[in-house]
Simulated scan of single mutants.
Amino acid sequence: MPARHSPIRRLLLAASLLCLFGSALADDLRDIRERGVLRHLGVPYANFVTGSGDGLDVEIVQLFARHLGVRYEFVPSTWDTVVGDLTGKDTRTKPTLPDPGRRPIRGDMIANGMTILPPRLKLVDFSDPTFPSAVWLLARSDTATQPIKPSGDKERDIRATKAALRQGSTFVIYNSCLDPALYDLENKGLPLKRFTGSNNVNDLVPAMLKRESDMTLLDVPDVMIALERWPGKIKVIGPISEEQRMAAAFRKDSPELRDAFNAFLAGIKKDGTYMKLVKKYYRVAPRYLPEFFRDIPGGKAGG
């Protein structure tokens, strides 16, 4: 008797799993419009998602939801789980397997100042760039390490900054844009220090100021905020990377949603809305990273 009903039991099991992971099925633009809500996955980070209900990416996605004619919903996540919350695959536990553990999908897009990195391109599709970035080396102002003298040659400046890493301990965060493997810093005998307090990039500078490390890798958006928050207490040593790009992330089976966002993003860049938001949250960004903003209306430094 049990054997005779096993196909039915398997069918019922499959149906129950379908219900369990129903939200994990692909939701593209049409599905979102029918559902009437756009779920924005975000991690509190710099001024992209402040954790207080606003931020550059929060306001951009709110405007995008209004553009689509749907309700906006913010879904808080963490750096460890946000990609899995989007894709329905638990990449924390089995990141190298072709089909990591399944999990419910909790959102339709990620937007929280996520840097476009090669490992992430295997898991998600990114929109057109939403913000520029780069990784710099930051130090306490009382350290002996001195800022490099800019040469006008970015590769030479990067080499000089990397040489300064030998002068003190430096915080890094693996599996992030601050992963030393991305910048050929591993196995070089450098005193790199894994940041273990949390995976929250916002905690790096406070920990450095408490003398838990002499220096830290940090991306430029956070550097801009840190320089304003702790004036006179920190200094920029130099660049560790070439200029990078941040973007919104989408599931690979949501091409129409990504295309709609790209068209929307181009529109708000053209009509000036984008730069108004940039200057609200990153007032000095055009001065620090002028190449990205130069061709955007209102994006010239001082403009």
Rank of each mutant, 00 (worst) to 15 (best):
G55P: 04
M246L: 14
A3D: 13
L97V: 13
G303A: 13
L257K: 03
S169G: 09
R10S: 07
T273A: 11
G22K: 08
T78Q: 11
G152L: 10
R4Q: 12
I148G: 01
F74V: 00
S141G: 00
A266S: 11
T273Y: 07
T145R: 02
L204G: 01
V284G: 00
D295R: 14
C177S: 13
P150Y: 10
I225K: 13
M275A: 06
L29T: 03
L17T: 04
E34F: 09
W136Y: 13
G51A: 04
A301T: 07
Y72D: 02
T91I: 15
L17K: 08
D203M: 12
P191A: 05
V61H: 03
P104V: 09
L20S: 09
K235R: 14
Y288N: 03
P76Q: 01
D27M: 09
I158C: 01
L63F: 05
G53M: 09
R103Q: 15
D85Q: 10
R245N: 05
F126Y: 15
T96V: 09
A260G: 05
R102E: 12
R251I: 02
T216L: 02
R156I: 11
R251A: 04
P231C: 04
R140E: 01
T130E: 14
P147A: 07
R140G: 04
G36F: 11
P118L: 08
D153E: 13
V82H: 07
R229F: 04
D125F: 02
D108F: 10
A163R: 12
C177F: 13
R39V: 05
Y183L: 06
P76D: 02
T93F: 14
R35V: 11
K89Q: 13
P286T: 06
L192V: 08
A65C: 03
L18A: 15
P132R: 06
K279M: 11
V278S: 05
G55R: 03
S198E: 12
A263D: 13
L185V: 10
R251N: 07
D85Y: 12
D157C: 10
G69I: 05
N200Q: 12
V172R: 02
V83Q: 08
F48E: 03
V58H: 11
D128I: 06
P100Y: 12
A26C: 08
D271H: 11
K94H: 14
I237D: 01
K270W: 06
D253I: 09
R33C: 06
G88C: 09
S16Q: 14
E34R: 15
D203W: 11
P95D: 02
D108P: 00
M224N: 01
L185S: 06
A26Q: 09
F74M: 08
L204Q: 00
V220S: 07
M224R: 06
D179S: 08
F131Y: 15
F21T: 02
I234F: 03
N187T: 05
R39H: 10
P129W: 01
W230R: 02
S176R: 07
K235Q: 11
L121W: 15
M208H: 01
Q167E: 15
L86H: 07
